[in-house]
Design a protein around this nucleic acid. Structure first.
Length: 517
DNA sequence: TTCCGACAGTGGGGTCGCAAT
DNA sequence: ATTGCGACCCCACTATCGGAA
């Protein structure tokens, strides 16, 4: 028997078969079959690859640097192991001349790959595999290949924050290895996420007895303290401890010795109101001169959940009990503001809290069922965020061709508001909110309005009005009016409106007095 | 049989930091 | 000094499958 000899071409083949299979169960079966074939040395690479993820965190290549076509090899020769080694080398490449050296490595790798392998490799590198199966189905496939219960594998992956680590352990030691993946202080777990709800009443109606918490517009953090050791992780589990000294100090000042807290890092201005997301994110993103960044934009944590305390794992406890622990551990200003309601009968109380929260300059609220456990890594149905929605009638200035399942459709719309001089100022783009029928319709309509064909799409006569929903305005260094829409999505095409009836830049700015271009 | 939760896919704007120009 | 690019922060929405109700 030989080790670590699986051909990369086999992965490309299975990926193609998975993409051609529509049933999820069929995809899982294909993945499981491949995972069973993998030697123990190959499995920790094969499994993340089929989940559409590279084990290497940072490669330094993206779609731009992959644009050059390389003639494919005639016959497959690459092994999984070789591809992994070359990509690891890519990740280690930095310093002067790095771009040229990366380009040589990628070129050599693509040159050794067949057409099918190139397609798979480029999909992996750009994150656009389009095989209809990513991590969740790879987890199912891994479970089936090893005979471990899928739910146990899923939980282990959430707690490990890594499919690769679980795959390696599972293949080496079998299903009993899953027991090793317990919640551990110091090892980040994937945070629980929230669904949207259109109103507080809807959310409370769905959830019954719940907590209504203020939603702060900052950076999600998970804070682990083990005695004097403290680590801060982002939503994607990135370690940002060194960038947030004041958050670390605050957490070390708490009474507990060992805990895991979930919260949001935000920044307040001198007036006590929250700074914009842009300012906070810029601060948290600063790595070079942290002291200067911290002096300019000091941040503070606001915690809303506790996952472990003093050796006790709290994930499976209902929110009501976790919150009681949180209240014991974290004093008021560092703990989220909230109200509790017993059900739909008290929805008005929740509405009042939302209005008051918005008044204080925050984003909205998150409504959480009091009886729900902490579903690590999932968009749990028991957390519902509610944010105010703004709408505007804007004019389509251009449209870009879509990719993947939107190939051949005009998808991404350039949106303009009227200006004082009778023209239009672009405020952003959106491809969201469109059904297949809307895509087909607008492709036809915009083609007829086209005045210029570009490689990326069409420029059109500014005649089609679209009703757009958006979360707010933000300052923009890119767009002519100095502002851009945040999270714009199409509600409907307004053929009944003429472009002269669209909103103006002026009215939009007036609706958001806090935003200064 | 119908409903609904979970996933995958399609990308959006902004900022930081590194390497190239 | 400025620009291009990759990595990550925030994010909304639709289509689809398959299990729950």
């Amino acid at each position: 028997m030989h080790h670590g000899r699986m051909l990369f071409a086999r992965l490309a083949q299975v990926s193609r078969e998975v993409a051609a299979t529509s049933a999820r169960s069929g995809k899982v079966a294909l993945l499981a079959e491949l995972f069973r074939e993998a030697e123990p040395d190959d499995a920790p690479v094969v499994i993340p690859y089929l989940a559409g993820r590279l084990p290497q965190v940072r490669l330094g290549v993206g779609w731009r640097s992959l644009g050059r076509r390389v003639p494919p090899a005639a016959a497959p020769s690459l092994t999984v192991r070789e591809v992994d080694l070359r990509l690891s080398e890519l990740g280690r490449t930095s310093g002067p001349g790095a771009r040229a050296r990366r380009s040589r490595i990628v070129g050599a790798l693509l040159g050794a790959a067949t057409e099918d392998e190139q397609r798979f490799l480029l999909g992996l590198l750009t994150g656009e595999l389009r095989q209809g199966a990513l991590e969740a189905l790879a987890v199912e496939g891994l479970a089936r290949a090893t005979g471990a219960p899928a739910a146990d594998v899923r939980r282990a992956v959430m707690l490990a924050g890594s499919l690769q680590a679980v795959a390696r352990a599972l293949l080496a030691d079998g299903p009993p290895a899953l027991a090793r993946f317990r919640l551990t202080v110091g090892r980040p777990v994937l945070p629980m996420l929230a669904h949207s709800a259109s109103s507080v009443a809807e959310a409370v109606g769905r959830l019954g007895a719940c907590a209504v918490e203020e939603k702060l517009d900052g950076i999600r953090v998970q804070v682990h303290r083990d005695g004097g050791t403290l680590r801060i992780h982002t939503r994607a589990l990135e370690d940002i401890t060194d960038r947030l000294p004041e958050v670390a100090a605050a957490a070390l000042g708490l009474a507990g010795e060992r805990f895991i807290l979930d919260g949001e890092v935000v920044s307040f201005g001198a007036d006590g109101r929250p700074r914009s997301f842009q300012e906070t994110a810029g601060r948290v993103g600063s790595r070079v001169d942290v002291a200067a960044a911290a002096a300019a934009v000091p941040v503070s944590p606001v915690f809303f959940d506790v996952l472990a305390v003093d050796g006790r794992e709290l994930l499976d406890l209902p929110l009501a009990e976790r919150y009681a622990e949180l209240a014991r551990l974290v004093p008021e200003p560092m703990r989220v503001r909230r109200v509790q309601v017993s059900g739909p009968g008290e929805a008005a109380e929740a509405e009042r809290f939302l209005a008051e929260t918005l008044e204080r300059g925050h984003e909205g609220v998150v409504v959480k069922a009091l009886d729900a456990p902490y579903s690590a890594g999932r968009r749990g149905a028991s957390w519902r965020k509610v944010k105010p929605v703004h709408t505007a009638d804007l004019v389509v200035l251009a449209a870009e061709w879509g990719h993947g399942r939107r190939a051949g459709r005009l998808s991404n719309l350039h949106l303009g508001a009227r200006t004082a001089d009778g023209g239009f100022a672009m405020l952003g783009k959106t491809f969201k909110g469109l059904t297949d029928a809307m895509l087909a319709w607008q492709t036809e309509r915009l083609r007829r309005l086209a005045v210029e064909e570009k490689e990326w799409g069409v420029v059109v006569r500014p005649e089609l009005v679209v009703e757009i929903a958006y979360d707010g305005l933000q300052r923009s260094p890119r767009y002519p009016a100095g502002v851009a829409l945040r999270f714009a999505r199409v509600l409907r095409h307004r053929e009944d409106k003429r472009p002269e009836e669209a909103d103006t830049v002026e009215t939009l700015l007036a609706a958001h007095p806090g935003v200064v271009p």
